[in-house]
Design a protein around this nucleic acid. Structure first.
Length: 593
RNA sequence: GGUCCCGUAGCUCAGUUGGAUAGAGCGACGGCCUUCUAAGCCGUAGGUCCCAGGUUCGAAUCCUGGCGGGAUCACCA
C-alpha cells in the first residue's frame, strides 16, 4: 500500500506540477497515533515543486489521491502532513484474507537460490557454554529463521574449535591429575568436567609462573617457559604429528564435550545443518598457506614462521604458521572458509562472532582476496556485542561467568514457581505442566536477550531477566494464551468468526490492524539488517496494543454477531502473527498459561 | 597512539531512508477483578537525546571537532 501511495503521488506531482520526482523520494509513513489517518505523506519536500505552501500542496494531493485510489476514504492536513485514511472495507478485506494465511508475514518466493550459510555457536571443546554463547546461538538461530522467512535458503553451520593449545591444556590437566575420572563417575556433563580441568590447568600454570618470578625470572620469560605450558605445547605438536596416544585422549575428551553440548543445544532449541571441525579443516588451511608461500604471495621469516603482509593496506603483518609449523586460528579459519565455499557455493557466508573479532574477520577477507579467491566479499562478519553483568564483565578467573546450563535451569525453575503461585496449571497433566515451565522459562530468557540490538553490548541483569511482567517473553506468551482461550470459549459457545461487514472499526481495533499490516515489512527489515530485535520489539508493541483492546472491548459479548465475528477474526490473526513472530525468535507460545 | 563500536528518564532498552508534542518496561506513587485469564489495564512523577558547531523548511537521527565508555592492533582463540 505504501508503494501504491508513493507511486500515485509521484504521478500526481508529474501531472499537477510537471515535475519529475523519484518515487523513492516520497516519504510515506505510518500516521502517528495521535492523529486521524493510516498513512501520512510529508509534503514539505514536495512544496518546492508545487511552488505552493505545504498545506496547500497536501490539500491538492489529498483530494486527487482520494479520487484515484479506491482504498482511500478520506484525508486531513495538519501543517505539512497529509494524513490519508483507508476505508473500513480495506481493513475488513485484509482480515478476511489473512485469516486463512498461516504463513502470514513470510515471503516464500525466493529470488536467490544459492544458500546463505550462517555460522554460529562455534564452541571450544575445553569448556562448557556460557551466557555469551547463548546470545550467539540465539542470534544465529533467529537470523537463520528470519532469512528463511524472507525467502532465502539457509544452511546453519557450526564450527567446533576442537583442536589447539587450549584443548591440550585440559587434556594435560586430566592426564596429570584426573585419575581416570569420567563424566559418569563424576555425575556431571562432559563439557563441565573438561572445563574443570581447564581451570585446574590455569591455576597450576599461574602458580608455576609466580614461583618462577620469585626465583628471579622475568614475568615475560616465566609466562613463556613455565613447564606446564611447554608440556601443553609439546602435546599440541604430538597431536599434529598424529601421535596415537594423544589422539586417543583427545577423542575421548572431545566426545564428552559433544555429548554435553548436544544437551545444551537441545534445551536451547537450536540446531545445525552441518558441523565443521577445525581438526578437519586446519590442514587444508595449512596447504593453502604453503601454496601461497610458493607463489610468493606470503613470506617466511628466518625462524620458519609464515606471514601475510598487509602493511600496504595500512594493516600489520599476520602470522599464519608458527615457527614450529603448527597452525593458528587464522589458518584454520582460512581452510574452513574455502571448504565451506566449495561445499555450498553460497550466496553469502555469515559468521555470527563477537565484536572482539572484527579485526580478525577483516584480515580473513583481505587474506582471501590476496590469495585470489574472488568471492572474498561474500564473507560477512555479523558481530554482536558482549554480554555483561550489572557488576561488570564476566571473568572466568573470578568465577563470575554465567554458565548456560545453570542459567536455563534457573529460568525454568523460576517459571515453574510463578506459574504455580498463580495457579495456572489447572487441567494440565504433569507432562504438559513441565513443558509449559520450559516454554515460559526459555521464552523469558530468549526474549530478554533478543530484544536488544545485536550490535550493542548488553547488560544481563539476572533479576530483570527472570521477571515475567512488562516487556518480557512471558507477557507476549500470556497474550497469545489469552487469545487462544477466547477462541476456545467461542467454539464452546458456537460463536462464529464469520462476518461480512460492521458499522465501524473501533480505534483500538484500528491500531491492531495497522500493526498487523506492518508485519511483513518488519520481517523484511529484520532480514536486511540481521536484527531479531526488530521482530521482538514489534511483537511487544502488538501484544501491548492487543491487551488494550482486550481490556476495553469485549470480543465474545459484542453487540452484534457480525461484530463478534470480526473481533474474533482480528484476535485470530493477531495470534497467528504473535506465533509466527515469536517463532522467528525461536520462542514457543503456549495455548494456555 | 591507529582503527572500529557505543553514549536517549534513576536502571534496562525502543526510536525506520532526517519529519508532527522523544517512547516503553522496571523501580516509585495512585486507581481497576459480580463481565472473554490481573503474567493484564488506566493514571501521576521522571529528559540539556554526552558537549559544541555545521547542513536543512525540519536533526536523537547526517557532517566536523571535542568529552566519556568499550573492543581491537599476539608465535591466544
Amino acid at each position: 500500500m505504501e508503494q501504491r501511495l508513493a507511486q500515485a503521488t509521484t504521478e500526481l506531482i508529474q501531472e499537477l506540477y510537471g515535475q519529475e520526482l523519484a518515487t523513492a523520494k516520497i516519504t510515506v509513513q505510518k500516521t502517528r497515533s495521535e492523529f486521524k489517518g493510516d498513512f501520512t505523506i510529508v509534503t514539505f519536500p514536495i512544496a518546492r515543486f508545487s511552488k505552493k505552501s505545504p498545506e496547500q500542496t497536501a490539500d491538492e494531493l489529498g483530494a486527487k489521491l482520494i479520487e484515484r485510489l479506491e482504498e482511500l476514504a478520506g484525508y486531513n492536513v495538519i501543517k505539512g502532513f497529509l494524513n490519508l485514511e483507508l476505508s473500513d472495507d480495506f481493513w475488513l478485506d485484509f482480515v478476511k484474507k489473512e485469516k486463512t494465511n498461516t504463513e502470514i508475514g513470510f515471503n516464500k518466493s525466493s529470488e536467490v537460490n544459492a544458500p546463505v550459510v550462517i555460522e554460529y555457536s562455534s564452541p571450544n571443546t575445553n569448556k562448557p557454554l556460557h551466557l555469551g554463547h547463548i546470545r550467539n546461538n540465539l542470534i544465529g538461530y533467529s537470523i537463520s529463521n528470519i532469512l528463511e522467512a524472507d525467502g532465502f535458503n539457509t544452511a546453519k553451520v557450526n564450527l567446533v574449535n576442537d583442536r589447539g593449545i587450549h584443548i591440550c591444556k585440559s587434556m594435560l590437566a586430566w592426564q596429570k591429575w584426573g585419575e581416570g575420572e569420567t563424566p559418569e563417575q563424576a555425575g556431571v556433563k562432559g563439557d563441565h568436567l573438561i572445563g574443570k580441568y581447564y581451570v585446574m590447568f590455569d591455576g597450576a600454570y599461574k602458580q608455576q609462573v609466580s614461583e618462577m618470578i620469585e626465583q628471579g625470572h622475568s614475568e615475560e620469560e616465566a609466562k613463556k617457559n613455565a613447564p606446564l605450558l611447554l608440556e601443553a605445547q609439546q602435546m599440541l605438536k604430538k597431536w599434529e604429528e598424529g601421535d596415537s596416544e594423544t589422539v586417543a585422549l583427545w577423542k575421548k575428551m572431545n566426545d564428552w564435550a559433544y555429548k554435553g553440548f548436544d544437551k545444551t543445544y537441545k534445551r536451547l532449541g537450536v540446531d545445525f545443518d552441518k558441523i565443521y571441525y577445525e581438526s578437519e579443516t586446519y590442514l587444508l588451511g595449512r596447504n593453502i598457506v604453503l601454496e601461497g608461500l610458493e607463489k610468493g604471495i606470503l613470506f617466511k621469516k628466518e625462524d620458519g614462521s609464515v606471514w601475510a603482509d598487509f602493511s600496504e593496506e595500512g594493516l600489520d603483518e599476520k602470522l599464519l604458521l608458527r615457527s614450529d609449523g603448527t597452525s593458528v586460528y587464522m589458518t584454520q579459519d582460512l581452510g574452513t572458509a574455502v571448504l565451506r565455499y566449495s561445499d555450498y557455493n553460497p550466496h553469502e557466508m555469515i559468521y555470527v562472532v563477537g565484536n572482539e573479532q572484527i579485526y580478525h574477520f577483516d584480515v580473513l577477507s583481505r587474506l582471501l582476496k590476496k590469495l585470489g579467491y574472488q568471492w572474498y566479499g561474500k564473507v560477512k562478519h555479523l558481530s554482536y556485542g558482549m554480554v555483561e553483568l550489572p557488576e561488570g564483565k564476566m571473568k572466568s578467573r573470578e568465577g563470575t561467568v554465567v554458565d548456560a546450563d545453570d542459567l536455563m535451569e534457573e529460568m525454568i525453575a523460576r517459571a515453574k514457581e510463578t506459574t504455580q503461585e498463580l495457579g495456572k496449571i489447572e487441567g494440565l497433566t504433569r507432562e504438559e505442566a513441565e513443558k509449559l515451565y520450559h516454554t515460559i522459562g526459555m521464552g523469558a530468557l530468549k526474549y530478554f536477550i533478543l530484544k536488544v540490538d545485536p550490535q550493542k553490548t548488553m547488560t544481563f541483569n539476572p533479576e530483570e531477566s527472570i521477571d515475567l511482567n512488562g516487556n518480557t517473553g512471558p507477557f507476549i506468551q500470556y497474550t497469545h494464551a489469552r487469545i487462544k482461550s477466547v477462541m476456545r470459549k467461542a467454539e464452546d459457545k458456537g460463536a462464529s468468526d464469520e462476518f461480512t461487514t460492521i458499522p465501524s472499526i473501533h480505534p483500538r481495533e484500528k491500531v491492531i490492524l495497522k500493526r498487523l499490516y506492518d508485519f511483513p515489512n518488519v520481517v523484511k527489515q529484520a532480514s536486511q539488517t540481521y536484527s531479531p530485535a526488530l521482530i521482538a520489539n514489534y511483537t511487544y508493541e502488538l501484544v501491548r496494543e492487543f491487551n488494550q483492546f482486550y481490556q476495553e472491548v469485549s470480543i465474545l459479548s459484542a453487540e452484534t454477531q457480525q461484530q463478534a465475528g470480526f473481533r474474533l477474526s482480528l484476535a485470530e490473526v493477531s495470534a497467528k502473527v504473535i506465533h509466527n513472530a515469536m517463532g522467528l525468535l525461536g520462542i514457543d507460545v503456549p495455548e494456555q498459561m
